[in-house]
Every structure is written in structure tokens, then in C-alpha cells.
């Protein structure tokens, strides 16, 4: 069953069509890639799926439920977690605190219990902290737990951001350019980690990334966007040999990608 799907999603900003009739299906436990030249509408598509934009027409479904009009936080509660193109973290918190806040919806105690420091609230906060530490440990970031964000490199921040989104306990993880700031070796490592995360956490993953070889290697299925329209879709092998895609990326006359 499709965990996440977009049906005929279109959005225009003051007459300018950013997305036109985009149809995307993401099945459980798949890693789905979204590629396309700059300005093709990839991030706009993410924003439509996660509720930051409301599509002008078309619908968005999470686990079969129509969510087109829901707010971002309501979609998060329904199991969609995302990262941002430029790091989406709370800059005045430490790494561990970021992952703690991201678990917002996992906390059971109410406002008054929190304010009055009821024992169960304190206990739950302890569990929250331990869980946050585990997530960091799982991603190999435990040594950064008490660091402030100001001291971290861009690549590190992108990784911490993934940890924070894992804190929301998503079914679908949507990553916007997770390789930004990473070297080739770290990128390979991240690819491995993505596959491992999918298996360990039974995650479904949607990735935006410019690094085509990486995408061809990691993804099960790839959608190609160009000028807000779906240019092609298919298994990595098919995309590799698609002439249109190669042209969109490399210009006229290019034979194939990679």
C-alpha cells in the first residue's frame, strides 16, 4: 500500500506554475528518490507533502488518509518527518535538546503536570532524554550530545537534523539534500546508513539529492522533475538510460546519465 501519495498535485504562485499535475506514489519500506535540475520544484513538492504549502489542486494522502488541508504538525503526527534544504534545527539548543524537543508528540504529560513538576512528568522527561541519546548513538553522533550547534560543521548539522527527525518517530522520512556538506566518503557512509535505517526502523524514505550516482545506487524508484512536471519515473536502471533525463541534466545531445 502506498504510505505517501500525491495525486495530480499542482501549485502556482501568482500565476507561475511551480508544480503541474505531479503524481507520486511511495510504497512502504521503499527508498524513493526525487531528482531534477535546480528550480524543478523538488522542495516545493516536499512542502506540499508536509503541509507547508497547500496545493492549488490535487490531493495528498498519508497512509490512505487525505491530508491536503492539514497543518504541518498534524501531518507529522500522522507519521511524516522531514528535513529542510537549509538545516532545520533550533539553534539555541544543544544537539541532545534538539532531539528531545523533536520528540514533542511522544510526550504524554500535560501542561500542568510539567509546570508543577509531577513525578511522572519528571520520569517521562528522563526517558525522553535517554531516547534522544539513543537516537544520537544509533547515528553515531552520541559524542556530540552536549555540543552547541554553533560549533558544528554544515555536514554534521545535516546529520543532527536527521537524528531530530528520527526523534519524531516517523513512518516516512523525507530528506532534502542530506548530502550537503559531506565529502565523498561520508556520502557513501550515509548511503549505507540510509539502507540500514530503512531496515532497522522499517522506514519509508523519500530523498531529494543532486548527486545522481548516489541516488541511482540507493533508491528503489526514482521520480524526475523538470519545470514542475514529472519528466520520468522508474527503477534506477531505467532512469539511467532515459534520454530525456540525460538531456534535462546535461543538455541536448547527451546520451545517458552516469
Amino acid at each position: 500500500m502506498a504510505v505517501l501519495s500525491a495525486r495530480d498535485v499542482s501549485i502556482s504562485f501568482g500565476g507561475l506554475k511551480a508544480l503541474t499535475d505531479v503524481d507520486v506514489e511511495v510504497n512502504e519500506n521503499e527508498i524513493v528518490g526525487l531528482i531534477g535540475p535546480n528550480g524543478a520544484g523538488k522542495t516545493t513538492f516536499f512542502n506540499c507533502m508536509t503541509g507547508f504549502y497547500t496545493p492549488t489542486s490535487g490531493d495528498v494522502f498519508i497512509n490512505g488518509e487525505r491530508v491536503s488541508e492539514l497543518r504541518p504538525d498534524q501531518r507529522t503526527v500522522r507519521g511524516v518527518g522531514r528535513t529542510f534544504q537549509h538545516v532545520g534545527l533550533v539553534r539555541s539548543f544543544t544537539v541532545l535538546e534538539n532531539v528531545m524537543v523533536a520528540q514533542h508528540r511522544k510526550v504524554g504529560y500535560g501542561l500542568l503536570s510539567g509546570l508543577t513538576g509531577m513525578p511522572w512528568a519528571l520520569e517521562e522527561d528522563k526517558v525522553l532524554r535517554a531516547r534522544a541519546y539513543e537516537v544520537l548513538d544509533y547515528l553515531g553522533l552520541a559524542h556530540l550530545a552536549d555540543e552547541r550547534l554553533g560549533g558544528l560543521s554544515y555536514g554534521m548539522l545535516k546529520q543532527v537534523e536527521v537524528a531530530a527527525v528520527l526523534g519524531t518517530d516517523p513512518d516516512v522520512l523525507m530528506l532534502d539534500e542530506p548530502l550537503a556538506g559531506l565529502g565523498p566518503e561520508e556520502s557513501d557512509e550515509f548511503g549505507e546508513r540510509l539502507l540500514r535505517m530503512r531496515r532497522d526502523l522499517s522506514l519509508t524514505i523519500v530523498v531529494i539529492e543532486h548527486h545522481v550516482p548516489f541516488m541511482l545506487r540507493v533508491c528503489d524508484y526514482i521520480y524526475v522533475l523538470n519545470f514542475g512536471r514529472l519528466l520520468a519515473e522508474g527503477k534506477p536502471e531505467a532512469i539511467r538510460q532515459n534520454r530525456d533525463v540525460a538531456e534535462a541534466y546535461l543538455g541536448e545531445g547527451a546520451a545517458t546519465l552516469a
Partner: peptide, 14 residues
């Protein structure tokens, strides 16, 4: 405090 730094990020965390 999270939404002070970024309402978008806060919303994306539910």
C-alpha cells in the same frame, strides 16, 4: 522556545 527559533522547524516536529 523551539518555535522562537523557527516556526517551520517546530511545526515539522509536530
Amino acid at each position: 522556545q523551539a518555535l522562537r527559533d523557527s516556526e517551520k522547524v517546530a511545526a515539522s516536529w509536530g
